[in-house]
Amino acid sequence: MQNLRALRQRIRSVQNTQKITKAMQMVAGAKLRRSQEELFAFRPYADRLSVIARRFAAAHPGFDHPLLNDGNLDAPAGLVLITSDTGLCGTYNERVFALAANFLKEFPSARVVAIGRKGSRSLIRREGIVFLKEPVSWGGKYDPADVLPFVDWMEQLFLSGQISSWYVAHTQFLSALQWKPIVPRLFPLERPESDAGFSEKLIVEPDSASVADQLLRQFVRAQFARMLLEAFTAEHSARMVAMKNATENADDMIKRLTLIRNKARQAAITKELIEVVSGAQAAMQ
């Protein structure tokens, strides 16, 4: 039978851990709500932008832009890896890593940039990975002031032919309990599908080249911003679920330990009784 005092201490320590996991669950829940709101507010903007791009493509069949064409194919590919800054979020990071590892098998010469400290730490141990710059850490928050210069930097490397194409390994948010790691291509852009129902004359100001330029630049920014928002929302949801599981496990553990403790206590009482009774009997004889 285990020592009673040790058992009590163990229960207390599990209870303390549970308090922490519960608090982390709540924090992740609040962050999840906030970034989910941000994501849902962002989607209509991105949707309108695609509608406009499709109409523009319909009015200008065969319009051309460097962002739509293959870059310098001799240059290495670029991979942006979006992971979390901190751990305790279940399999969230591992699943992105698995995808990135497959990607790097396919494009062994790819250059990597990590957003989120976890991504750089995991890849830094592998041989032959070339980082383009220091890992970026945005703490799971989307701020255009950080993100837009980053997109411009990617665009510049692509247009100057230093990077043949950019891919972004990140996690897509499906629901509060479901997410999926994906690695879509960002540069060159997919040509916007033209809106087949559109047949009117469209006035374009100041001219179609600059509208196309700005349209595509905003489009690429919106795409990247959306990936970040999806990834951050998924991160908070992953962390919330992981902490919820931890809290529930702690509950189970406390129940099990309490049972053992009670048994131990009863055994100790029984033992003492037996000692008293047998002592008394011995004295009577």
């Binding site: 374009v204 100001e205 700005q214």
Partner: peptide, 19 residues
Amino acid sequence: PGALGYLGILHNHAPLMTT
């Protein structure tokens, strides 16, 4: 505030796209 200066839009304006 269009790229070519301020522009006004009224009912039944022709299809237009501007920065």
